[in-house]
Design a protein around this nucleic acid. Structure first.
Lengths: 122, 122, 122, 122
DNA sequence: GTGGTCTAGACCACT
DNA sequence: GTGGTCTAGACCACA
């Protein structure tokens, strides 16, 4: 109980990201049901209205859809999920770059860092 | 007022990192004075004891030293600061890798990500 | 209840010494559990935070280790305990020398004092 | 202000020792005047009655004498002062032995300790 | 003014 | 139960 929210960003945005991550990781399959507003609110220790707001935005984006009286489901569109995977990766990349930039590494240190990432992925 | 702390990790550790970042970025020069316990506590919106704990650990690590009754100062040892720069970069790298890993990118997507980073740094 | 602390030195340092003495005397065997923070605080009539501080420093020195949720234990390293025995003896020697020095004994009186110590230990 | 008293022993005894030490160290010459009850009470942060009690005992022992209306003076008897020097040394020796004994040093360690004391005094 | 220490009392995660 | 962290507020020595 109690989800680690970044206090500087709106919680509903962070809930949206969390749902996207679960889908992208396959924890929720395409077309699979996401937790009910009440369950997720309890799990994360936030107000149900905040979760509802997140779900509303996700639906507006077309990432989830609602079956009246049955629950909320992740899109069945694989391409949509793939797109989200790349968006999340891209935003992780930008956060990483921003953080590294602020540290003021020299060229050699950046090259070394790049080499390590490459090594990890080969 | 109010510093964006990650609620899952001890605040004093995050204060230690913040001071190291300021020194690494050159905001505090080698041998320069860091904020007083009370000032930083006010700036970050935490209890002075928590800042004092962070300073105590930083001194034990040899990253800062204190002049009795005068204040706390960043080490004058350039190598020590350089070491911290690389440590901070390395931990940023690991956080990035961990996040990317959880997203389950395929080889092509990872290669593309790497290419973008390389481009940014060349 | 009520431990005889020297009011001129930090209590947490004296608690560290007390724990070391108990281990060196064999009252706590190598690998044995030391009193819980709360128990020792009650026994010595000090605040639990002060005992916790002492335990933290002892752990940093490698003289004790903690098992999460279980308690704090003296190191199993005999050499480490032996080292502490000699350090405590050395500091007792220095205190003795300092006190004697301040009394201004002449050579004969010092020799006599030495003779008595020798006699006691032979 | 505030003298470092050992809370486990009567304060008046510790005041007696302090006066004896000052005389033995020559801070107060034979026949010299010791501080007034009020001055010493203020210096040490204790009740004047406690100091008066200490002076009374010192006089009973013959270590000091009182000139009515003028103050209290250390004895002019050199032998008496010398005797006190040896008593203080002897009690320091006993405290040292007691402390060392509790540490459980082996023969070699005791011999080494003795050697160091000898070295310091040669 | 500075950091260093201590108390009081609270909440947390882990076993 | 255990230690770990945090807040609030106090007093201290040092410069």
């Amino acid at each position: 109980m109690g989800f680690p929210f970044d206090p500087t960003r709106p919680i509903y945005l962070q809930i949206m990201e969390e749902i996207k991550k679960r889908a992208v990781r396959g924890e929720i399959p395409p077309g699979g049901q996401i937790p009910s507003v009440r369950d997720l609110a309890k799990e994360m220790g936030v107000n149900p209205n905040t979760v509802a707001r997140a779900y509303l935005e996700l639906e507006r984006e077309g990432f989830v859809f609602t079956k009246r009286g049955q629950g909320t489901y992740v899109t069945q569109d694989f391409a949509r999920i793939e797109q989200e995977r790349e968006r999340l990766a891209e935003s992780a990349r930008q956060r990483f770059l921003k953080e590294i930039e602020s540290l003021g590494l020299n060229e050699d240190q950046k090259a070394e860092l790049l080499r390590k990432i490459e090594e990890d992925w080969s």
